[in-house]
Amino acid sequence: MQILVVDDDALAAEMIGAVLESEGYQPLLAESAIEGMEQLNANPDVGLVISDMNMPLINGIEFFRELREQGNQLPFILLTGDDPKQAQQQEAGLDACILKDFNLDTSLPGLVSEVLNKR
């Protein structure tokens, strides 16, 4: 399955990509919400979106809302450097919200399959 990863920090995006790849997913990387949107249009098979929260111009939650507004119902996981609960409160429609830390390689795969199974 293809997963779109949006993070303005290219290294962070690659890190998440590496974790996903090791689980057998095909990550598509984008450095901004706009680039992410383009990727989604070009790759209709994407099954999940993972996005960073704090990005220039359009942040993660704005990106999520934009997608929903356009009728895109893909599962959406928000990554944040701050308290994930806050973001979850701010936008209840998020499928999951996870803290950026060094355990991503163990915590992220579980969360991805959990989110996918719920759908």
Binding site: D8, D9, A12, M15, N54, L79, G81, K100, D101, F102
Partner: peptide, 15 residues
């Protein structure tokens, strides 16, 4: 602010 933020987030991501 964003530079610090991303340093924080990515910093934590890499431990």
């Amino acid at each position: 602010h964003r530079t610090f933020h991303s340093l924080k987030g990515t910093g934590y991501s890499f431990g």
